[in-house]
Simulated scan of single mutants.
Amino acid sequence: MKGWTVCRMHGAGGGHGPGKANPAYKHGMRTREAQEMRKDINEHVRLARALETLVGHER
């Protein structure tokens, strides 16, 4: 449509919000919070393995 930057049928800003209010929400494993937590845990594991290598202990 003239004068609009998005289609009136498929325009931006619609849809459901994030989190438990979203009908597609199932278990929360893919939430931003869960993904950030996994990144932090993986970083701690990498640091622990590097420290273990420096100390000289092998698995």
Results as ranks from 00 to 15, higher is better:
residue 25 Y to S: 01
residue 37 M to P: 00
residue 38 R to H: 05
residue 58 E to L: 08
residue 37 M to V: 02
residue 29 M to A: 10
residue 1 M to Q: 07
residue 31 T to V: 01
residue 54 L to A: 08
residue 3 G to I: 11
residue 42 N to G: 04
residue 17 G to W: 01
residue 59 R to N: 06
residue 28 G to F: 04
residue 22 N to F: 04
residue 18 P to M: 01
residue 16 H to E: 10
residue 13 G to I: 02
residue 15 G to Q: 02
residue 9 M to D: 13
residue 32 R to Q: 07
residue 57 H to W: 13
residue 35 Q to A: 07
residue 13 G to P: 02
residue 49 R to A: 12
residue 41 I to S: 02
residue 36 E to Q: 14
residue 32 R to M: 00
residue 44 H to Y: 00
residue 27 H to C: 13
residue 1 M to V: 06
residue 4 W to R: 14
residue 28 G to Y: 04
residue 17 G to L: 06
residue 43 E to T: 11
residue 30 R to S: 12
residue 33 E to V: 06
residue 59 R to Y: 06
residue 2 K to P: 08
residue 1 M to S: 06
residue 58 E to K: 15
residue 38 R to K: 15
residue 12 A to K: 08
residue 34 A to S: 14
residue 4 W to E: 09
residue 15 G to M: 01
residue 12 A to N: 05
residue 40 D to N: 04
residue 10 H to P: 00
residue 56 G to R: 08
residue 47 L to K: 14
residue 26 K to M: 06
residue 51 L to C: 14
residue 42 N to K: 12
residue 19 G to C: 08
residue 20 K to D: 01
residue 8 R to C: 01
residue 57 H to K: 12
residue 29 M to E: 11
residue 5 T to Q: 14
residue 4 W to P: 00
residue 8 R to G: 02
residue 29 M to F: 06
residue 27 H to L: 07
residue 12 A to Q: 06
residue 59 R to W: 05
residue 25 Y to V: 00
residue 43 E to R: 14
residue 58 E to D: 13
residue 49 R to V: 11
residue 7 C to I: 10
residue 6 V to E: 08
residue 20 K to M: 09
residue 50 A to N: 07
residue 21 A to D: 10
residue 22 N to T: 03
